[in-house]
Design a binder for these strands. Structure first.
Length: 881
RNA sequence: GGGCGGUUAGCUCAGUGGUUAGAGCGCUUGCUUCACACGCAAGAAGUCAGAGGUUCAAAUCCUCUACCGCCCACCA
């Protein structure tokens, strides 16, 4: 066994073992899910990372939490599928490649759609490999044989099939609506892709003259330039101020147009002047008013948000330049009544931060309410459970107020809309590219140039990855999946849509549980972002501390749905824990002997053996129940505290004397068994170090545990594990040892000096006797145990009362009383001298008046401390007299 | 405007009705103890944001207040 020890370095070196085991696991095919018809599978479809760059800590957290669940369920013997993939990430990825092009002073328009798409695919190939490799470094046990990409043929066909299906049901339509237009990306966006931000701006009050010259009506607006597209002024019909004006005509300033004043309920009488300019082409509210009053939709903007020909002389100006020009001109005509400061929310493009412009435009939409209804029901009924529970309300609130979803994007990267147009006017909507027009037979068909919102394909992910629309064995067996685990910030983008689409396509909710984790922030609590430069690279952390340390650091202390911060100290704690396990195992491996199961002959074993087995049982129970509740942070803490605070700090130490004495009942079986079981319990959290150590133990003690810890059994709670007698007695023992150590530290007893302690326990605890010897070394106390309390306690003794016993320590055993008395005298003299000096100093008026307050205070504090010290010394002197 | 979360030891956070509120890091003191200094032992440190209420019992449940953060939202 000595050789074995030589093989193991003194400290754990992650790099040397991680790659080895990952390759071994892959080569053994442990990650590949197998269909076992009579068993219920555990299934997680991994949230596919965007192919926009490197993995960040959020991905690491997602991957780790999912790996914990997956490894546990696999160890529990369930057929387990964790399906990995990547998302083409439509606009986000296109922005990344456009930026790369910009560095070459190129735009996508310059190189054309075909060349641009080629560039995209080049990027994808590099990025996907990168993402997979980073995932592998994290130790993820996902089934790489089933890896998917959203643009793969299968998922792509699912997208087209779904589109056609919804179109045929009348749930996808094309129409002119107000959409969010990003001029930089040159595309429409869904409402979710717009991020609102409060900005300080102005409210401009503009006079609109009545056509007949009979005065004017004042409207308030935050976007004066849009007046160029006004087609009415609206007032509330109940508003006494304006009631009589309804139907009157206005000469719209800066244009030649004459518009009407209309009455509409939607106008607030409270805000602004109570009269609102109506621009149906550039405001969702106005668009609705326009529909009700049959108003013209006058689009005044080009796609690059310059003013178009409808803006008359302002044509060609950029929107904000136009705003200034319009205001100036109005002012010069005396039509600007006033300007007020005004704060309001302005929409920005989620991907490029450009200010969004609402524009009426022809786009494709999903009529969402019919899809939302069963999705709401599935959560209300409890078919899907959202954790933590508070997100249920957030989900329902959004779903119940959901609005139609704009799914067409004027991008080049993504799933092309499966719609073809023929010159004869025919529109063909089909999953497979048509050869000719069914109406006129023409082969000159034009496919719709737009692509679909990237979330349109992600929403199908739970079943498109398993083969849908085909009826495949995977789909039949693994669907519906078990848990959808992801960050709470994509609850609407992704989770809600998966539920709607999953139910629509399969009549079943796509998963049983939604578990939402929080975001990882930097040490200051800021969201990590590349522009802020506060991004922590998981790869760097793994290089520096090891993968298990990173996994420990991001799981330890987290609560479901709560954000967390990552810091170097957490990573160090993880590394230290791995190292602690490494060394505990090294200690165990130094010993040799035959091993039996820990449950065998347990009742014949000494109390400390029964104690640690009982504690293991309790921890197993805790971990089981915590993991069932998705409390990963608490479960990890529980295992950590047990291994470090009980197994290493107490059990190993309790065993040391026994291992030297070579007693009749060797602790080795329990020493090995508890460690081996704990490693299995910890494995899902820290897969590499546990595999490495478990392999050593498995071989050295010939346990026959199998080829890998990752397919060994996960420890489950056993009813009989608890041993109250052992727990209370060893608990008492620990209390005694701590008390003695405490006294030794307090009296500064030399480390090697043995002290004499007598322990008095009630008659029932007399069995403590045989185990006191084991603790003697630890406590450096020569201990005698008495069943009953002696009538007389020796005078020069220290008495410590614990819950069930009393400890009496002879003062003379802690130090030589004569020498100690001399030492105290000496110290007292010195302390008294210093006290006198300080008292004189403080009494000196010259000092207290002239010295800075802080200096005086400091001296006072010093005096207080010395007085306290003197009191303690006097008390100590009295006691040992 | 609507909703949610947070406020616990110097720092980062667990704990959500039950004796004396925990951990990691930091701090103080002492240890080259034959697994580990990425360690061991001992210690100091908290009016659990504030106020009121329910209860035998509240950090935990209820109400209100304050501050911080987040999400949703078409009042121009």
């Amino acid at each position: 066994m000595q050789d074995q020890e030589n093989e193991l370095p003194k400290a754990y070196e992650p790099r040397s073992v991680e790659q080895k085991w990952y390759e071994y696991w892959m080569q053994q095919g442990y990650f590949t899910a197998k269909i076992i018809p009579d068993k219920k599978p555990f299934v997680i479809i991994q949230p596919p990372p965007n192919i926009t760059g490197d993995l960040h800590l959020g991905h690491a957290l997602t991957a780790t939490i999912e790996d914990i669940m997956v490894r546990r369920h696999r160890m529990l013997g369930e057929p387990t599928l964790w399906l990995p993939g990547e998302d083409h990430a439509g606009i986000a990825a296109q922005v990344v490649v456009e930026r790369a092009l910009a560095k070459e002073h190129l735009t996508r328009q310059q190189i054309g759609r075909e060349k641009f798409t080629e560039r995209m695919w080049q990027w994808v190939n590099g990025c996907r490999a990168n993402i997979s490799n980073q995932h592998k470094r994290l130790g993820v046990s996902c089934d790489w044989t089933r890896e998917c990409f959203t643009l793969d043929p299968g998922p792509s066909r699912a997208v087209r099939t779904f589109f056609v299906k919804l179109y045929e049901k009348g749930l996808i339509y094309r129409g002119e609506r107000i959409i969010n237009w990003c001029a930089r990306c040159s595309t429409a966006l869904s409402d979710l892709e717009v991020e609102h931000e409060e900005v300080g701006s102005c409210l401009w009050y503009i006079k609109y003259p009545l056509e007949d010259g009979d005065g004017y009506i004042v409207v308030a607006t935050t976007r004066p330039e849009t007046m160029l597209g006004d087609s009415a002024v609206a007032v509330n019909p109940v508003d006494e101020r304006y009631k009589s004006l309804i139907g009157r005509r206005i000469k719209l300033p800066l244009t030649e147009r004459v518009i009407h004043i209309v009455g509409d309920d939607s106008v607030s009488t409270e805000f602004g002047t109570g009269a609102v300019k109506v621009t149906p082409a550039h405001d969702p509210n106005d668009f609705e008013i326009g529909l009700r009053h049959n108003l013209a939709i006058i689009n005044i903007l080009n796609n690059d948000v310059t003013i178009n020909e409808n803006g008359g002389k302002f044509a060609g100006l950029e929107r904000f330049t136009a705003r200034e020009a319009v205001v100036d001109e109005l002012n010069s005509y005396g039509l600007l009544e006033k300007t007020e400061p005004h704060t309001h929310a302005v929409g920005h493009c989620q991907r490029c931060r450009t200010i969004i412009e609402p524009i009426a435009s022809q786009q494709w939409f999903v009529k969402i309410a019919p899809l939302a209804e069963p999705a709401i029901k599935s959560v209300k009924d409890g078919a899907i459970t959202i954790l933590p529970e508070r997100f249920t309300k957030v989900y329902l609130n959004w779903m119940e107020n959901i609005r139609d979803w704009c799914i067409s994007r004027q991008l080049w990267w993504g799933h092309r809309i499966p719609v073809w147009y023929c010159d004869c006017g025919q529109t063909i909507v089909t999953a497979d590219e048509p050869d000719s027009c069914p109406q006129c037979g023409s082969t000159q068909l034009r496919q719709d140039p737009d692509v679909l919102d990237t979330w349109f394909s992600s929403g199908l992910w739970t079943h498109s990855t398993l083969g849908w629309p085909d009826d495949t064995p995977d789909l039949r067996y693994f669907y519906p999946t078990t848990v959808m685990e992801t960050a709470y910030d994509i609850l609407f983008f992704w989770v809600a849509r998966m539920i709607m689409m999953g139910i629509e396509n399969t009549q079943q909710p796509p998963f049983r549980y939604v578990y939402l984790h929080g975001l990882i922030r930097d040490e200051k609590g800021d969201k990590m972002s590349k522009t802020k430069g506060n991004v922590v690279d998981p790869l760097e952390m793994m290089d520096k501390y090891g993968t298990d340390a990173l996994r420990f650091a991001i799981i330890n202390g987290i609560a479901p749905g709560n954000d967390s911060k990552l810091s170097a100290t957490k990573l160090e704690a993880g590394r230290n824990f791995a190292n602690k396990l490494w060394n505990a195992t090294r200690f165990v491996l130094r010993h040799d002997g035959a091993i039996v199961a820990i449950s065998e002959d347990l009742s014949l074993r000494p109390l400390e053996d029964r104690w640690i087995v009982s504690r293991l049982g309790t921890v197993t129970q805790e971990v089981d129940s915590l993991l069932k509740k998705f409390e990963f942070g608490e479960a990890l803490r529980s295992i950590h505290d047990f291994l470090w605070g009980e197994y290493c700090d107490w059990y190993i130490e309790l065993c040391k004397p026994r291992l030297l004495d070579n007693p009749a009942v060797s602790p080795l079986s329990v020493l090995v068994g508890v460690l081996e079981t704990s490693l299995r319990m910890l494995h899902p959290f820290m897969p590499f170090v546990t595999e490495e150590l478990w392999q050593h133990i498995n071989q050295a003690f010939n346990i026959g545990g199998g080829d890998s810890i990752m397919i060994a059994a996960y420890p489950l709670p056993v009813e009989t594990a608890l041993d109250m007698e052992a727990e209370s007695t060893i608990g008492l023992l620990i209390g005694i040892v701590r008390a003695i150590r405490n006294i030794r530290a307090e009296y500064e007893v030399e480390p090697n000096r043995l002290i004499e302690a007598a322990i008095y326990v009630g008659g029932k605890q007399a069995f403590l006797l045989p185990y006191i010897n084991a603790m003697e070394v630890l406590a450096k106390a020569k201990v005698s145990v008495h069943a009953e309390k002696q009538a007389e306690i020796p005078i020069q003794a220290l008495c410590i009362a614990l819950e069930n016993c009393e400890i009496v320590i002879q003062m003379s055993s802690m130090f030589d009383i004569r020498l100690e008395t001399e030492r105290i005298e000496k110290e007292l003299t010195a302390v008294l001298a210093e006290i006198r000096r300080l008292e004189l100093l403080l009494a000196d008026k010259a000092f207290s008046d002239k010295a800075p307050v802080t200096v005086v205070e400091k001296q006072k504090e010093k005096l207080d401390a010395l007085l306290g010290k003197m009191a303690r010394l006097v008390e100590h002197k009295e006691r040992i007299k």
